[in-house]
Nucleic acid binder design. Structure first.
Length: 462
DNA sequence: AGGGATTTTGG
DNA sequence: CAAAATCCC
């Protein structure tokens, strides 16, 4: 018998999962493949999940547990330090091999490298696979051998490349009851998801999330199918109208690996190239952000353009009232407030509104992009370790291939252009015309001028 | 994937 | 004289 332990992380699916598939191909009986998820809140450099992500994770693990059970595979749940847990568990199980899908953040790579070095000393083989990206970051290089720092040439290169076809879901090994019977007695039981308390209870604020999402692997495939059948054709223009929300809404499924970018890519190839080009380039932006994180592991916390280190951003503590007005959707700018309330209620904010909301916080309120990034990390169901900070750095102007600093969104103008009938803002701000809605907390014109003055100082032209 | 001031265009 | 193009931040 060859027993393989498959360590799931941000790849919570059963289809197009090379690590799982190869484990199953080696298996002869139920129980020869064992799944594991570790809730890691202790490894340095591994960012603890935000509240909305914890909600999604709970349901994603429930979904994975069911889908693995249908393949005759038990999913074990453990909490703690994976560096300790993996070895102990592999030994208790008598597993000869451990498989996983690669991670690309700095802290995650350090954890994985440590385990990959340690297990073979105990006779346990480790093999890792790609599951989260179209192309491994080290395979996409400029002519001079470095990482791309500009999106357009990056996209030119990867869009001309075939990412490879999705891999099939494994053939079932047998009934999961048989798998349970064949496992040795473990020092801990399989683990109970409820014990992790990932779902909010007092209060239960997840009602809006439940109403807006189906956080399962099947839900991801259904959303992909629906989007490609009915929305992608008009994506180019329709994506800019937040009242309709004709964006793909696939980001949380990609975040948790319930869908792979390769599955999305392959499904989109069934459509005409001109109708999916803009959509696929957004998948390209996600890829670009992950490649950036791989090459610049400081991305989540450090300006990629160091001259911004001298920018006099304020902290959340410097201006708690203004920060909370922004966070809770009380700035007096309907476009931004609607977005923040949509975020709080649904765990999601339309992309066109995200840009303006971030711009207001960073440029008009003068608050550090890291404060807004942390808020989004806690409240978005789709926040991932690469896209979230990379896009905040994009708006702030301090990232690679970022928006020029002097692009400052005007939330009133954005509302006129993209919500002229106020369908979006009135959905999220019922008191808009009742007199209870607050006046703007800052003056757009003067704060804009202040931001530009600060910018000219750090850019060396002041 | 901007905004705003200013200049130019064209009916 | 209003809309479009251009330039600057």
């Amino acid at each position: 018998m060859t027993r393989t332990l498959v360590w799931f992380r941000d790849d919570l699916r059963t289809a197009d999962h090379e690590a799982l598939l190869q484990a199953c191909e080696r298996a002869e009986n139920p129980g020869d493949v064992v799944g594991l998820y570790v809730l890691d809140e202790v490894s340095p450099g591994v960012r603890p999940l935000g509240g909305a992500a914890r909600w999604w994770l709970h349901h994603a693990l429930e979904s994975l547990q069911q889908n693995l059970a249908a393949l005759g595979i038990v999913l074990l749940l453990r909490r703690g330090d994976p560096a300790e847990l993996l070895l102990g568990l592999a030994q208790e199980l008598g597993a000869e091999r451990v498989h996983w899908s690669r991670r690309y953040g700095g802290g995650e790579r350090a954890v994985d490298a440590g385990i990959k070095a340690a297990l073979p000393e105990h006779g346990i083989a480790v093999e890792s696979f790609n599951a989260s990206l179209l192309h491994e970051p080290w395979t996409v290089q400029t002519n001079t051998g470095g990482p791309y720092k500009v999106y357009t040439p990056f996209w030119r290169q990867i869009s001309a490349r075939e990412p490879g076809l999705p891999r099939p879901r494994p053939v079932p090994l047998g009934p999961v009851e048989a798998a349970h019977r064949r496992l040795p007695e473990l020092s801990q039981g399989p683990g109970e998801l409820e014990d992790w308390q990932l779902l909010p209870t007092s209060p239960d604020w997840a009602g809006g999330l439940r109403r807006n999402w189906t956080p399962t692997e099947a839900g991801g495939h259904a959303r992909l199918k629906e989007f490609l059948a009915t929305q992608v054709q008009d994506y180019d223009d329709a994506r800019d109208v937040p009242a309709d929300d004709d964006t793909s809404r696939l980001s949380p499924y990609l975040r948790f690996g319930q869908l792979s970018p390769r599955q999305v890519w392959e499904a989109a190839q069934q459509q005409s190239p001109e109708s999916v080009g803009t959509f696929l380039s957004e998948i390209g932006w996600r890829e670009f952000c992950w490649h950036l994180l791989f090459h610049f592991p400081q991305l989540p916390h450090t300006n990629l353009r160091p001259q911004f280190d001298a920018y006099p951003w304020r902290s959340r503590d410097d201006s708690p009232e203004e920060f909370m007005a922004w966070a809770q959707g009380r700035t007096g700018f309907p476009w931004v407030d609607a977005g923040q309330r949509q975020l709080w209620e649904t765990g999601h904010m339309h992309n066109r509104v995200r840009m303006a909301s971030a711009s207001l916080l960073i440029k008009n309120l003068g608050i550090d992009w890291r404060e807004g990034e942390a808020w989004f990390w806690d409240t978005l169901v789709d926040a991932d370790a690469a896209s979230n900070p990379a896009n905040w750095q994009w708006v702030a102007g301090c990232g690679m291939d970022a928006a020029p600093y002097f692009r400052i969104f005007n939330p009133q103008r954005q509302r006129e252009r993209f919500d002229p009938e106020s369908r979006y803002v009135s959905t999220w701000i019922p008191e808009l015309n009742t007199g209870e809605y607050p006046a703007p907390i800052i003056d757009l014109k003067t704060t804009r001028e202040e931001a530009l003055a600060h910018y000219s100082q750090i850019s060396g032209r002041g």
